[in-house]
């Protein structure tokens, strides 16, 4: 009997998800033993047209990482959706846009303008990349950038979400174990739409730092103090996002002395990450006087980034979605 087929693809991503998968070390052999890897550009050499030639639904499991930044990304998303029984939005970019989703705060022309007018750019004629360009020898093409970065589920139907930037390797290993058990009839798949490879609580619940339910008089910057290594970072005034962020990473950043920046996305049941974080931060502010509250909030120098750092593209704001729909690009 032939083995079920497995695929992994990167759209607009950094490659960190692929490295996280490689970091499962010997468990990669389980993937090899239980699956026929049919498409994985980082690891093997099948082409788009090989995928096109497959029967619809013939790939059992596809892990799709990266956001949808251009027409090529979207084309492959549709193709893999059609060919896959189970499509997983793998990693923060595919789930909620991740850091590249911060681009949605700016119009696309500004993004291109900025890149091609930096102080080291020698561009007196104001040249901009053209999606098709006539060279003396013939016409050449590059993909069309979309006005906004979109999440995978804004272009195709997604079966499961696996958060993290990147997903922690032990979580990837656990998901692989589960799928292998399902294949052996020893376990069942979670309901469609579920978040997999993560916890159901918050990073705070996994964090070993001491919490005293203390309120704060001001927000601090991590570089402007020597933070106490044992005490809750938020109680020290450092804007740590653990309270709104899904568990599953073992609170890795706070354990290393750095604030949680929210890469595992909204905790279970949280509809809008930013809104939850606003309410959490509000609850630790020790003031009732509006002027005093304003002064304390001024300590958060980048509220938009603080509250929507990883999930702008997938948030309720859906920043840029309407712009996308209006656009003819």
């Amino acid at each position: 009997m032939s083995k079920p087929k497995f695929a992994m693809y990167w759209a607009a991503s950094c490659g960190g998800c692929e490295i996280a998968v490689l970091n499962i070390h010997e468990k990669i052999l389980d993937v090899d033993a239980n699956f026929d890897v049919v498409f994985w550009p980082v690891a093997m050499d099948a082409k788009y047209k090989d995928v096109e030639a497959m029967e619809d639904g013939s790939i059992l499991l596809t892990l799709f990482n990266g956001g949808i930044r251009n027409d090529e990304n979207e084309h492959i998303a549709h193709l893999l959706r059609k060919k896959s029984k189970i499509l997983v939005a793998f990693g923060s970019c595919a789930c909620e846009g991740c850091i590249p989703g911060l681009a949605n705060f700016s119009p696309i022309n500004e993004i291109v303008e900025t890149a091609f007018s930096t102080i080291s750019t020698d561009n007196p004629q104001g040249i901009r990349p053209q999606t098709s360009y006539q060279m003396p020898e013939g016409e050449i093409h590059i993909p069309t950038l979309y006005p906004v970065l979109r999440t995978l589920d804004s272009v195709v139907d997604v079966d499961y979400y696996m958060p993290g930037c990147p997903p922690e390797s032990h979580q990837i290993g656990a998901v692989i174990d589960l799928v292998v058990q399902v294949l052996q009839g020893k376990a069942e798949l979670p309901p469609k739409g579920a978040t997999i490879g993560a916890g159901n609580s918050t990073v705070c619940d996994e964090c070993k730092r001491t919490r005293n339910v203390k309120t704060i008089k001001e927000f601090s910057r991590i570089q402007l103090m020597h933070a106490d290594p044992e005490l809750c970072l938020l109680e020290q005034g450092i804007p740590c996002n653990g309270v709104a962020t899904r568990s599953g990473c073992d609170a890795r950043c706070p354990t290393a002395g750095a604030q949680c920046i929210g890469c595992y996305g909204p905790a279970e049941g949280v509809i809008d990450y930013g809104a939850r974080l606003v309410s959490a931060f509000a609850s630790v502010i020790d003031a009732n006087d509006p002027a005093e509250i304003d002064r304390i909030l001024d300590g958060l120098v980048d509220p938009a980034g603080q509250f929507y750092r990883f999930n702008l593209a997938g948030s309720l704001l859906k920043a840029g979605k309407s712009a996308f729909q209006r656009s003819n690009v």
Partner: peptide, 24 residues
Amino acid sequence: PELRGFERFCVGRPVEEMPLLTNR
């Protein structure tokens, strides 16, 4: 064929976050 725009969207962010944002 790629452009993700880090030079634009890092504007407005606290500088201590740059080692975390540009990782990506």
